[in-house]
Amino acid sequence: MFTVLLQFILSGITVGAIYALVGLGFNIIYNATSIINLAQGEFVVMGGLIMWFFSQSLQLPFFTSIILTILLVGLIGLMMERLTINPLKNADLLLMIMITVAVSIVLRGILMFKFGKDPYSYPPFTEGEPIVILGAVIQQQVLWVLGITLTCIGLIFLFFNKTMLGKAMSACAVNPTAAKLVGINVSRMIMLSFILSAILGAIGGIAITPISLMEYDKGPSLAVKGFCAAIMGGLGNGMGAVVGGFIIGILESLTAGYIHSGFKDAVALVILLGILFFKPAGLFGSKATLSVRKF
């Protein structure tokens, strides 16, 4: 009884980790630009599929494949910003968000063209017996997912709170004019925010694919859940998104386990609506942050 519950929670935490990364990615771009990047889920998908391509199709060594995947997805993030966001600098925010939707559709098209509609997977990072804790079985890859996610989250927080580059990036978000006036290259910071988000997504995708498989059209559902995580934590609040991601992952898994797996995907949307109705600033946001939010 308890073991089953624990098992559900564990698998919830695992997907939750990916939602957390997507949510964090949303926030990084949102904080730099006020844009909601709805192509965020495609970064995760590309992480998994491109990793498959390098490691399985081309048979490159494991580490080389990871590095190449991260670089390539980072480059795609950069190109997305330079080709679609940067040229439209002063356009309406809603238009920019629609453009990210367009980018996600184009990326999905390219992925389907290259990879087809089949799910892909590759072996876990380490071979070996699953670990059993209190009767619940934990695959080694789950530990990889959690370890990598928590490390990434830690690094992102150090970056924004302890490094001058990170503070400069947050300054662009708070007041782009003032950032320019102290000599910060705001356009380069926005580019950096897309690269960072893309890389975070890619890392999530690389880590989760051995567990949950990856196919070309998983992006939108990941984006929706990451978005819910971000809203739940209070848009712009990085730690909030992380907590939100884990909560959504766990609730989803419990719903699938105890009610019906068909309801799983509705969980995030119900939470989203609930938050928007009752606590629009998010669990950790204040009214003040809501008032400066641009939409």
């Binding site: 503070k167 947050s170 300054a171 007041n175 004019t177 950032a179 102290v182 910060i184």
Partner: peptide, 23 residues
């Protein structure tokens, strides 16, 4: 020094000064 000050209101006094020297 812009109209309305335009500080980086989420950062400390010292961080605002440090960012001033960003270049």
């Amino acid at each position: 020094v812009p109209e309305g000050r335009m500080l980086f209101t989420h950062l400390t006094v010292k961080d605002n000064l440090l960012l001033g020297a960003y270049n």
